[in-house]
Nucleic acid binder design. Structure first.
Lengths: 336, 336
DNA sequence: TTGAAAGCGCTAACAT
DNA sequence: ATGTTAGCGCTTTCAA
């Protein structure tokens, strides 16, 4: 890499110490106007750029925010992440930070996984999307007092910060909607049971079943791990039940869509023969036929709020713990 | 951040110098077996993790690969990026590197934009998706001898490396397909004209028009900048033409879908009244109604090849320039 | 308003 | 097989 200009070089040419240059660079401490201008001119002339790594090592801050994405699916950047990531990025950049997205494989062995990038000050704070409940890294982050925010995850611990949605209420809303439409036998497609969202939604399903005095059938609860293909398969099994439900509520849109595909493949009409409702409102939801009725999560907003709180915690203007919930909204379309 | 264990601490406890610990850490140079084991035990006991930033500063490598995503759309992580990113990530992790995704705003002012992260050794190499032709940063990377690969971009310069697809052939294939289906009046929706892909596809459209001796009409070429909404609007204008085409070839799927939505909104049937063909084969393409016929780009493979070549260049086993093209494939569905 | 010294935590290069 | 020295490029701290 040619022509590496360092702060020392700039200082030398300006006839000042590196500290003065540093002050100009960071707007820290007083510098005489003319000196500052001279230095700025030289910086421009030499096209000098501070070495971020050296700066991080020395100052222990990087002005970077990391976004951890649990890489479970093959194509992990889906519209769910796209919407949340967009919200985060907006806020973070507004406040002069940069964002970096880290896909990480969920191996429970490498305990270091992403503690090291924070400890090393590669990034100043972390936003973690849809963490697993048994993720050991989170506790390490907390123990190390690393600023972090969990998105779409819930854990009431005083050094855990999260922003989640009102899953219980949302699930009930969906159930009541189906009930109103005449459904009394409702199946539920659960996501990964190691995510609090899944757990909450499943629990709420059971509660709603009781509250609405619905028929209960264990076979109607299918586990598909937020995976479209798995939902496709589980829907097949569901159709084998002697006592067939008339509606499906799925824990996310991708599962709803997978299930719907299977139903249609087997010749059923949606929603006439079986209604289907999803969760999230990803881009695909409005494109499938019939378009998907779903419980909309305000994903972009989720990202924005997470970013705001994280940055405030880093700045020290917000104290831990942050435990927030955003509202959900039923989006009525044509699938149920 | 509590209990910061450094290499010095490990060395002290092991009764050796930091260099010996460093050697154990990096498998560099010889260390007596027992010493190594003792050191490893202490590392485990103290839960020591090397400081990545200090390591980067000293060694000038970070074992990280950056992926630059031009942030033009609001939700920038779409399925196009998802597929490419997935391919990249697979290869990069296989080879012991990590990946980080950087969304960057396309402001031409900040010339530093992403040169600084490489110069600073935050990352060892860069993959850039769909760069603009007038992107000044690329030349800076080249001038600074930064290892980089452009994906879905073409530029024959000896210090530019790219992996692209055979856009010309692909476009012609699509045109011939429409021709075979009886179409003689074919419209074209061009993407952003500051991307080589768009330029190539538009050029190929014109060539095909000539080769197939088709009717020519300037109004049939619409510019929609890879934007679904813009395509929606342009399709409206297209319908105003006195001499209306019978088919649309779009430079990417999102535009094709936007156009299709408008046609359907105006009461036209696709493909009977107007055929529509896209480019890419993103996830949405198979979900829209009618499902989208498209020229499939091997997106995941594109990512894999980009990553392989980049890592080889970093390792010194691959020389610049790398100029590669992957084949395209017509995916026949129901829209044309 | 400016500078000098020290050090962030690690590894390269050269000893031994 | 191991250690010493120096330094990566910056900022912190203290002094002037």
């Amino acid at each position: 890499m040619s022509a590496k200009v360092t702060i020392a070089e700039v200082a030398k040419r300006a006839g000042v110490s590196t500290m003065t240059v540093s002050r100009v660079l960071n707007n820290t401490g007083p510098v005489k106007k003319e000196t500052a201008e001279r230095i700025r001119a030289i910086i421009a002339e030499l096209n000098y750029q501070p070495n971020l790594v050296a700066r991080s090592l020395s100052s222990k801050r990087s002005m970077m925010i990391g976004i951890i994405i649990n890489r479970v699916k093959k194509v992990f950047f889906d519209n769910y992440i796209g919407q949340i990531g967009s919200g985060i990025t907006d806020i973070v950049q507004e406040r002069g930070y940069r964002v970096m997205f880290f896909p990480v494989e969920t191996d429970r062995e490498k305990t270091s996984a992403y503690l090291d990038i924070v400890r090393s000050h590669v990034i100043d704070g972390l936003i973690i999307l849809r963490s697993k409940t048994d993720n050991p890294h989170i506790q390490m982050l907390a123990d190390n007092e690393v600023p972090f925010m969990l998105v779409n995850h819930k854990k009431y611990k005083k050094n855990y910060n999260f922003i989640d949605t009102e899953n219980i209420e949302g699930t009930k809303t969906a159930m009541r909607h189906l009930y109103t439409n005449g459904h009394r036998k409702i199946a539920f497609f659960a996501g990964s049971m190691d995510e609090t969202n899944s757990i909450d939604r499943l629990k709420a399903y059971h509660t709603a079943v009781k509250e609405l005095r619905l028929v209960v059938n264990e076979e109607w609860v299918r586990y598909a791990e937020f995976d479209k293909q798995k939902a496709f398969e589980e829907a097949g099994k569901l159709l084998q039940c002697t006592n067939r439900p008339t509606a499906i509520l799925a824990s996310d849109d991708y599962m709803a869509i997978g299930a719907m595909e299977r139903l249609q493949k087997e010749g059923l009409r949606v929603p006439q023969d079986m209604a289907v409702i999803g969760f999230d409102d990803v881009e695909l939801a409005s494109y499938v036929k019939p378009s998907l009725t779903t419980i909309r999560q305000p994903l972009t907003e989720l990202g924005r709020v997470a970013a705001e709180n994280l940055l405030n915690m880093i700045a020290g203007t917000q104290k831990s713990p942050v435990h927030k919930f955003l509202k959900l909204e039923l989006v009525k379309r044509n699938s149920g």
